[in-house]
Amino acid sequence: MVEYQLLRAHSLDELLEILDQRENVQLLAGGTDLMVDLHHQDQKFDKIDYLLDITAVDELKGIQLGDKKGEIGALTTHAELVSNPEIKEKLPFIAAAASSIGSTQIRNRATIGGNLANAAACADSFSPLIALGAEVVLRSKGGARRVLLEDFVEWPYQTIIKPDEVLEKIVFAMPQGEYYSSYQKIGRRKALSISRISLTLLAEVENGRVKKAQVASGAATPFPVPFRKVNDYLNGKSFAEIDPIEAGNIAADEMVGITGERWSTPYKRPALGKLVERAVEDLLEEAGYNG
């Protein structure tokens, strides 16, 4: 039977103090994953003595997008990401990913930090942030460290967060100059759907050439990774040199290189290839290239 003591932190200091002082503390934010585990009386609660509700910690909230840098507080809900005008304008792929998550009720509670910290293979927040080259700030009473998001997950549902740390915020450099993005997701239905595959492409371009491309996918691999071979293929190429189909094939091969042939590969290989192909086509079209 599940037993724990429920604590509530009202400030970041109080939160860090509790993490410092106590052991076997599980953080609780929007609760949309943890409450499911609680309903199932999941074994993970065997190792939880304290459940620490952090939803009242205001320091973990807020979105700040500057010219050079951006920050998203870990407690930012998906609903806030969808409705934030700056996100919509400057980083529309983040809004698109957030709007595809769960339902209105889920997005009103679920947080971006929670989605990352839970680290499900199908979590939709990863691919846009990895495409941004984002880092997470992990804070403990002793200080903070920054880790590249792509290095944050060790295995599905397992991150490098230490027991005394909290995921405070996500920080990233804002894309510069002329840039384009595409977010795509395949689900089994049109709402309340777990990603079969999701994909973000973000590319800075200059003079008809891709300056810096980042392709990342969710649910295609056990934990989210950037597709470096596709990035390498796109980087430095002029629009005329880019073949969307080839980009898709490279991505599909890269995915299978990571996962090996799995039961889902016969579907995921062509589907991922197609999503990458479409993302690249979107990029070329939005950049005004008419082949």
Binding site: R8, M35, T55, Q105, I106, N108
Partner: peptide
């Protein structure tokens, strides 16, 4: 459903629609 999938337990908490099965009461003090 008790897992936030069906919405039958939806209530409004501080102006937002929320699945009341997904929230501990202490969280919304």
């Amino acid at each position: 459903c008790s897992v936030g999938e069906c919405g039958a337990c939806t209530v409004i908490v501080d102006d937002q629609a929320v699945n009341s099965c997904m929230v501990l009461t202490a969280q919304v003090d």
